[in-house]
Design a protein around this nucleic acid. Structure first.
Lengths: 336, 336
DNA sequence: TTGTAGGCGTTATCAA
DNA sequence: TTGATAACGCCTACAA
């Protein structure tokens, strides 16, 4: 495995010069440059990134900590971030937290140990790892949160404007005449401080249609929980006339429960969901969804990260608007 | 940032001893051990993985190179691998190749530079990077291929038994009476040596129903190509009576094209697909699919990788059977 | 424009 | 059971 020293020796120059042929070729005399390039070719030299990482205090990698890589939103985000990092010669160190603080901490330790240049993370709920993250930041790791952000969190963030999206979705339902609307999942200030659920509750209340207490339950963002909760909702005496799924995976669970109950969309019940997943356009009628600008997120994130990981920092606290796509899964409330 | 030397100093021992308290605590006297542990606590010591990586020649990370992280099969595979690596204190360095050799090479260079301990990869088509991969292997990186494998590839592999799956799928269709079956995508020995397409062609031929030349076209594994190709197929005079989608994303494109053409499944055309994605159970009728044992793949892969990345190697060339799930998207061939 | 030298934190080897 | 020492390959002052 050739090192820069071998290259230098073969080219008859010092290692410093040899390295410059790669990093600042314009600072070398043409003939020197050529000699070094020749030697690099000869020896098939490729830099050892681990040595650079040790010396520099950080590796050429960005940590991406998502909640669940199987959730299409995160998979797409990972791709958008990944391709852009690749274009800047950075790698992607991927980890997940399954929305759990302890798993998150384990992964943070690893990422910190690997000296990631920056960290893009979807925080788990609760302030559990705040202290650790602050330590990482003090040591120079640039940290930015995505998708979720604790109200008092000291980090940069970039995420969907959850409030605008919830309001947009509700106005869509209100116009159709719905008032008995259930959100799939309930806000809890500490345990589960989910923004979409939070705004849902608040905006419904402010609009004069507080969410029925029978509709309020804390569930996880997964298909099974959404399925079971929907079944429960459909069996209520005061059955909701519309369901609002707070992410794509929940929508699958809800849809399945509605089908199994033998109910029709939108005649018996309306369904509105976050995330424009491919299947939502395939079923009949198509599902009304709120689409996130994932590409734009990836672009802004990578730009921000590259700009801020060394040198002075420009804070970023940004909310991006979502887009409502109407396909027919929401109609007027049923007579029941 | 405390180093092991700081710990050693505080504990009044040598760095060697201090490190042993972490790696081989049983080799220390209880009191020494305690002193060191105390010092570690005091200083909040966490090892610098980049230093270890430099010294050891590899980092505590496994490279995972998939074709496309948004394809649910790869996302699930990444999760299964990720959780298991985490349990062994390894990280996951993720990259993709978009099925393209040049992108793959770029990512391989990065992964090699980062000195990944092992590499799990879904190779792009063609032998383009063979030489580079062999060099990596010579330098000690354990490499195993997943999902696809060139016939003469010298690496270990673990993948679906594509042949068994194609045969199983075709037998399902044959029993229903289909002979005009089109696979979404065609095998090309060099350009696109796709196993599923290859076996599809061969098995159809051997069964006495060679695929019509009008059905043979090379397309990429993505929704748009599958959509367009399906549209083309549906407009043929000799329209196929059944479509076989070779992965989950293709199935989406095919389904969309069938819907837009105003055709009914399975009355007008049957659809069979690889990958048991959530949506295939939601549409009516549900899609008949071939499911891959992704969890088992993750388990075997991580086990193999951890066992083989240092020390002597046990070759692995394994095919796992898929499972046919029948839901109703395949019926008898239409009269047309 | 080019070169020298020291150290980043760990780990492997050898010695005590 | 413990310790001293020497790299691993690169990068950054600084010097020439």
């Amino acid at each position: 495995m050739a090192t820069i020293n071998d290259v230098a020796k073969l080219a008859g120059v010092s290692p410093t010069t040899a390295k410059r042929a790669i990093n600042e070729p314009h600072k070398l005399q043409p003939q020197t440059l050529e000699k070094v390039q020749w030697a690099i070719q000869q020896l098939d030299y490729e830099p050892d990134l681990t040595a650079g990482a040790l010396r520099r205090g950080r590796n050429l990698t960005v940590g991406l900590l998502v909640a669940d890589i199987v959730e299409p939103f995160f998979a797409e985000l990972a791709r958008e971030i990944g391709v852009r990092l690749r274009n800047s010669n950075y790698g992607l160190l991927l980890a997940d937290n399954e929305y759990q603080t302890e798993i998150e901490l384990h992964n943070l330790r690893h990422l910190a140990g690997q000296r990631v240049s920056a960290l893009i993370m979807r925080p788990s709920y609760g302030p559990g790892n705040r202290e650790y993250l602050l330590k990482m930041q003090d040591k120079g790791t640039y940290i930015i949160e995505v998708d979720h952000h604790m109200p008092d969190s000291p980090f940069d963030y970039l995420m969907l404007d959850h409030e605008q999206c919830i309001r947009m979705g509700l106005e869509h339902l209100w116009k159709l005449g719905h008032t008995r609307i259930a959100g799939l999942g309930t806000h809890h200030p500490e345990l589960y401080p989910e923004w979409r659920a939070h705004h849902f509750d608040r905006i419904m209340r402010e609009h004069g249609h507080p969410v029925l207490s029978a509709y309020r339950e804390i569930i996880r963002y997964n298909e099974q929980d959404a399925y079971e909760f929907t079944r429960y909702l459909l069996n209520l005496q005061e059955r909701p006339t519309a369901l609002f799924a707070f992410n794509g995976t929940e929508a699958i669970g809800a849809y399945r429960a509605i089908q199994e109950a033998g109910l029709s969309i939108p005649e018996d019940i309306s369904l509105l969901a976050f995330d424009n997943l491919p299947w939502t356009a395939l079923v009949k009628p198509g599902i009304d969804v709120i689409e996130q600008p994932i590409q734009q997120m990836g672009e802004l994130l990578v730009h921000q990260v590259l700009k801020n990981m060394d040198g002075p920092r420009t804070p970023l606290h940004k909310l991006l608007p979502g887009k409502l796509i109407v396909r027919g899964s929401c109609g007027g409330p049923s007579g029941k």
